[in-house]
Protein backbone atom coordinates (compact mmCIF):
# COMPACT_ATOMS: atom_id res chain seq x y z
CA UNK A 1 0.00 0.00 0.00
CA UNK A 2 1.26 3.45 -0.85
CA UNK A 3 1.67 6.14 1.78
CA UNK A 4 -1.48 8.19 2.37
CA UNK A 5 -1.19 11.82 1.23
CA UNK A 6 -1.97 12.95 4.73
CA UNK A 7 -2.06 10.94 7.92
CA UNK A 8 -2.96 11.95 11.43
CA UNK A 9 -1.87 9.54 14.13
CA UNK A 10 -3.06 9.61 17.73
CA UNK A 11 -3.40 13.38 17.89
CA UNK A 12 -4.26 14.85 21.28
CA UNK A 13 -4.78 18.41 22.37
CA UNK A 14 -6.20 19.72 25.62
CA UNK A 15 -6.87 23.30 26.64
CA UNK A 16 -6.87 23.24 30.41
CA UNK A 17 -9.45 20.65 31.38
CA UNK A 18 -11.07 20.56 27.96
CA UNK A 19 -9.88 17.84 25.63
CA UNK A 20 -10.42 19.32 22.19
CA UNK A 21 -8.71 16.54 20.27
CA UNK A 22 -8.86 13.12 21.84
CA UNK A 23 -6.67 10.51 20.20
CA UNK A 24 -7.69 11.32 16.63
CA UNK A 25 -6.33 9.22 13.80
CA UNK A 26 -7.39 9.54 10.19
CA UNK A 27 -5.84 9.46 6.78
CA UNK A 28 -6.34 10.87 3.33
CA UNK A 29 -5.61 8.57 0.41
CA UNK A 30 -4.75 9.43 -3.16
CA UNK A 31 -7.73 10.40 -5.28
CA UNK A 32 -10.34 10.69 -2.55
CA UNK A 33 -12.44 13.26 -0.81
CA UNK A 34 -12.52 12.53 2.88
CA UNK A 35 -15.16 14.56 4.66
CA UNK A 36 -14.83 15.53 8.30
CA UNK A 37 -18.15 16.31 9.91
CA UNK A 38 -19.26 16.98 13.42
CA UNK A 39 -21.49 19.28 15.43
CA UNK A 40 -20.33 22.74 16.52
CA UNK A 41 -17.72 22.49 19.24
CA UNK A 42 -16.66 18.99 18.18
CA UNK A 43 -13.07 20.17 17.77
CA UNK A 44 -12.92 20.41 13.97
CA UNK A 45 -11.16 23.77 13.97
CA UNK A 46 -8.62 22.64 16.54
CA UNK A 47 -7.92 19.53 14.50
CA UNK A 48 -7.51 21.54 11.29
CA UNK A 49 -5.26 23.95 13.16
CA UNK A 50 -3.00 21.10 14.20
CA UNK A 51 -2.88 19.62 10.73
CA UNK A 52 -2.02 22.99 9.16
CA UNK A 53 0.56 23.76 11.85
CA UNK A 54 -0.99 26.67 13.72
CA UNK A 55 -1.55 24.66 16.89
CA UNK A 56 1.03 22.31 18.39
CA UNK A 57 -0.51 19.00 19.50
CA UNK A 58 0.19 17.58 22.96
CA UNK A 59 0.78 14.15 21.48
CA UNK A 60 0.56 12.37 18.17
CA UNK A 61 1.92 12.94 14.70
CA UNK A 62 0.97 14.48 11.39
CA UNK A 63 2.48 13.01 8.23
CA UNK A 64 2.40 14.57 4.81
CA UNK A 65 3.11 12.09 2.01
CA UNK A 66 4.89 9.87 4.51
CA UNK A 67 7.00 12.64 5.98
CA UNK A 68 6.59 13.53 9.64
CA UNK A 69 5.72 17.26 9.68
CA UNK A 70 4.63 17.48 13.33
CA UNK A 71 7.54 19.74 14.25
CA UNK A 72 7.29 22.00 11.21
CA UNK A 73 5.66 25.42 10.95
CA UNK A 74 2.73 26.49 8.79
CA UNK A 75 4.86 27.86 5.94
CA UNK A 76 7.05 24.77 5.75
CA UNK A 77 4.05 22.46 5.60
CA UNK A 78 2.59 24.61 2.84
CA UNK A 79 5.83 24.38 0.87
CA UNK A 80 5.77 20.62 1.28
CA UNK A 81 2.39 20.60 -0.43
CA UNK A 82 -0.35 21.16 2.13
CA UNK A 83 -2.82 23.51 0.47
CA UNK A 84 -5.51 25.10 2.55
CA UNK A 85 -8.62 27.25 2.39
CA UNK A 86 -10.20 28.94 5.37
CA UNK A 87 -13.63 28.91 6.90
CA UNK A 88 -13.67 32.69 6.52
CA UNK A 89 -11.88 33.78 3.34
CA UNK A 90 -8.38 34.94 4.15
CA UNK A 91 -6.98 36.91 1.24
CA UNK A 92 -5.35 40.32 0.88
CA UNK A 93 -8.37 42.41 -0.06
CA UNK A 94 -6.64 45.35 -1.82
CA UNK A 95 -4.58 43.06 -4.04
CA UNK A 96 -5.86 41.57 -7.25
CA UNK A 97 -6.85 37.94 -7.40
CA UNK A 98 -3.79 37.28 -9.55
CA UNK A 99 -1.44 38.84 -6.97
CA UNK A 100 -2.89 36.66 -4.26
CA UNK A 101 -2.33 33.53 -6.30
CA UNK A 102 1.09 34.63 -7.54
CA UNK A 103 2.33 34.72 -3.97
CA UNK A 104 1.58 31.04 -3.56
CA UNK A 105 3.25 30.29 -6.89
CA UNK A 106 6.25 32.31 -5.72
CA UNK A 107 6.78 30.06 -2.70
CA UNK A 108 6.63 26.98 -4.88
CA UNK A 109 8.98 28.42 -7.46
CA UNK A 110 11.77 29.13 -5.02
CA UNK A 111 13.05 31.85 -2.75
CA UNK A 112 11.12 34.96 -1.82
CA UNK A 113 14.40 36.67 -1.05
CA UNK A 114 14.85 38.08 -4.51
CA UNK A 115 15.00 41.80 -4.47
CA UNK A 116 15.42 43.11 -7.99
CA UNK A 117 13.37 41.43 -10.66
CA UNK A 118 9.84 42.81 -10.85
CA UNK A 119 7.16 40.19 -10.23
CA UNK A 120 4.69 41.70 -12.64
CA UNK A 121 7.15 40.94 -15.44
CA UNK A 122 7.95 37.48 -14.07
CA UNK A 123 6.28 35.36 -16.75
CA UNK A 124 6.60 32.10 -14.86
CA UNK A 125 4.75 33.50 -11.85
CA UNK A 126 2.04 35.21 -13.88
CA UNK A 127 1.50 32.08 -15.98
CA UNK A 128 1.31 29.84 -12.91
CA UNK A 129 -1.24 32.17 -11.33
CA UNK A 130 -3.32 32.40 -14.50
CA UNK A 131 -3.30 28.62 -14.85
CA UNK A 132 -4.53 28.17 -11.28
CA UNK A 133 -7.23 30.81 -11.75
CA UNK A 134 -8.36 29.18 -15.00
CA UNK A 135 -8.50 25.84 -13.22
CA UNK A 136 -11.10 27.19 -10.77
CA UNK A 137 -13.03 28.97 -13.52
CA UNK A 138 -11.78 32.48 -12.85
CA UNK A 139 -9.86 33.04 -16.09
CA UNK A 140 -10.20 36.71 -16.96
CA UNK A 141 -10.93 37.79 -13.37
CA UNK A 142 -7.28 37.99 -12.37
CA UNK A 143 -7.08 41.79 -12.47
CA UNK A 144 -10.00 42.38 -10.15
CA UNK A 145 -9.12 43.44 -6.60
CA UNK A 146 -10.14 40.65 -4.26
CA UNK A 147 -12.35 43.06 -2.32
CA UNK A 148 -14.52 43.53 -5.42
CA UNK A 149 -15.03 39.82 -6.07
CA UNK A 150 -18.17 38.06 -4.97
CA UNK A 151 -18.11 35.86 -1.91
CA UNK A 152 -18.12 32.74 -4.07
CA UNK A 153 -15.33 34.02 -6.26
CA UNK A 154 -13.19 34.72 -3.20
CA UNK A 155 -13.66 31.12 -2.13
CA UNK A 156 -12.45 30.05 -5.54
CA UNK A 157 -9.43 32.36 -5.35
CA UNK A 158 -8.48 30.63 -2.12
CA UNK A 159 -8.68 27.27 -3.83
CA UNK A 160 -6.56 28.69 -6.66
CA UNK A 161 -3.97 29.81 -4.10
CA UNK A 162 -3.89 26.30 -2.70
CA UNK A 163 -3.53 24.84 -6.21
CA UNK A 164 -0.66 27.19 -7.06
CA UNK A 165 1.34 25.55 -4.28
CA UNK A 166 1.34 22.32 -6.25
CA UNK A 167 -0.43 20.57 -3.38
CA UNK A 168 -0.09 16.96 -2.34
CA UNK A 169 -3.14 17.32 -0.11
CA UNK A 170 -5.87 19.93 0.21
CA UNK A 171 -7.45 21.00 3.46
CA UNK A 172 -10.70 22.81 2.69
CA UNK A 173 -12.52 24.30 5.65
CA UNK A 174 -16.22 24.73 4.85
CA UNK A 175 -15.70 25.87 1.27
CA UNK A 176 -19.46 25.79 0.60
CA UNK A 177 -20.38 28.07 3.50
CA UNK A 178 -22.37 31.07 2.37
CA UNK A 179 -22.60 29.99 -1.25
CA UNK A 180 -25.96 29.78 -2.97
CA UNK A 181 -27.17 26.52 -4.47
CA UNK A 182 -25.66 27.41 -7.82
CA UNK A 183 -22.31 28.42 -6.34
CA UNK A 184 -21.95 25.34 -4.20
CA UNK A 185 -22.98 23.14 -7.14
CA UNK A 186 -20.20 24.64 -9.27
CA UNK A 187 -17.70 24.26 -6.45
CA UNK A 188 -18.76 20.64 -5.90
CA UNK A 189 -18.10 19.92 -9.60
CA UNK A 190 -14.70 21.53 -9.26
CA UNK A 191 -13.79 19.49 -6.18
CA UNK A 192 -14.78 16.31 -8.04
CA UNK A 193 -12.18 17.06 -10.69
CA UNK A 194 -9.54 18.30 -8.25
CA UNK A 195 -9.45 15.20 -6.11
CA UNK A 196 -7.54 13.28 -8.75
CA UNK A 197 -4.81 15.90 -8.55
CA UNK A 198 -4.69 16.19 -4.80
CA UNK A 199 -6.92 14.37 -2.33
CA UNK A 200 -9.16 16.62 -0.26
CA UNK A 201 -9.88 16.67 3.44
CA UNK A 202 -13.20 18.46 3.44
CA UNK A 203 -14.68 20.01 6.54
CA UNK A 204 -18.28 20.76 5.69
CA UNK A 205 -21.60 21.51 7.30
CA UNK A 206 -23.66 21.02 4.18
CA UNK A 207 -24.72 17.37 4.56
CA UNK A 208 -26.08 17.10 1.03
CA UNK A 209 -22.71 18.15 -0.33
CA UNK A 210 -20.89 15.77 1.98
CA UNK A 211 -22.99 12.76 1.06
CA UNK A 212 -22.75 13.63 -2.63
CA UNK A 213 -19.03 14.35 -2.81
CA UNK A 214 -17.27 12.35 -0.17
CA UNK A 215 -15.71 8.97 -0.68
CA UNK A 216 -15.27 8.52 3.04
CA UNK A 217 -16.60 10.36 6.06
CA UNK A 218 -15.22 10.71 9.56
CA UNK A 219 -17.48 11.95 12.32
CA UNK A 220 -15.96 13.99 15.10
CA UNK A 221 -17.89 14.38 18.34
CA UNK A 222 -16.39 15.95 21.46
CA UNK A 223 -12.87 15.59 20.09
CA UNK A 224 -13.19 11.89 19.20
CA UNK A 225 -13.74 10.19 15.89
CA UNK A 226 -16.87 8.18 16.64
CA UNK A 227 -17.20 6.70 13.18
CA UNK A 228 -15.22 6.58 9.96
CA UNK A 229 -15.99 4.84 6.71
CA UNK A 230 -17.71 5.00 3.32
CA UNK A 231 -20.68 7.30 2.96
CA UNK A 232 -23.34 4.58 2.96
CA UNK A 233 -21.95 3.07 6.15
CA UNK A 234 -21.87 6.40 7.95
CA UNK A 235 -25.38 7.26 6.84
CA UNK A 236 -26.63 4.03 8.34
CA UNK A 237 -24.56 4.10 11.54
CA UNK A 238 -27.00 4.37 14.46
CA UNK A 239 -24.46 6.06 16.73
CA UNK A 240 -23.83 8.76 14.14
CA UNK A 241 -27.54 9.28 13.67
CA UNK A 242 -27.98 9.68 17.38
CA UNK A 243 -24.96 11.90 18.04
CA UNK A 244 -25.00 14.01 14.98
CA UNK A 245 -27.97 13.76 12.73
CA UNK A 246 -30.34 14.36 15.61
CA UNK A 247 -32.34 11.18 15.29
CA UNK A 248 -32.95 8.39 17.75
Amino acid sequence: MTEPALAVEGLRKAFGGLTATDDVSLDLRAGEIHALIGPNGAGKSTLIGQIAGWIAPDAGRVRLAGRDVTGLGVAERARLGLGRSFQVSSLAAPLSARRNVMLAAQAREGSSFRFWRQVRRDRALVAAAEAALARVGLAGRGNVPTAELSHGERRLVEVACALALGPKALLLDEPMAGLGAEGSGALADLLETLKAEAPILLVEHDMDAVFRLADRVSVLVAGRVIASGPVAEIRADPEVRRAYLGED
Binding site: R79, A92, P94, L103, Q106, A107, W116, L165
Partner: peptide, 23 residues
Protein backbone atom coordinates in the same frame (compact mmCIF):
# COMPACT_ATOMS: atom_id res chain seq x y z
CA UNK B 1 10.11 42.29 -6.43
CA UNK B 2 9.26 38.91 -4.96
CA UNK B 3 10.52 40.13 -1.64
CA UNK B 4 8.26 43.17 -1.89
CA UNK B 5 5.27 40.96 -2.66
CA UNK B 6 6.01 38.92 0.45
CA UNK B 7 6.59 42.04 2.61
CA UNK B 8 3.32 43.56 1.42
CA UNK B 9 1.46 40.37 2.28
CA UNK B 10 3.17 40.27 5.69
CA UNK B 11 1.39 43.58 6.35
CA UNK B 12 -1.94 42.81 4.69
CA UNK B 13 -2.44 39.24 5.81
CA UNK B 14 0.35 37.29 7.53
CA UNK B 15 -1.90 34.22 7.80
CA UNK B 16 -2.21 34.15 4.01
CA UNK B 17 1.55 34.61 3.65
CA UNK B 18 2.28 31.58 5.83
CA UNK B 19 -0.42 29.57 4.09
CA UNK B 20 1.24 30.42 0.79
CA UNK B 21 4.39 28.77 2.12
CA UNK B 22 6.35 31.87 3.14
CA UNK B 23 7.31 32.35 6.77
Amino acid sequence: SRFGAALTMARLNPVRLATAGID
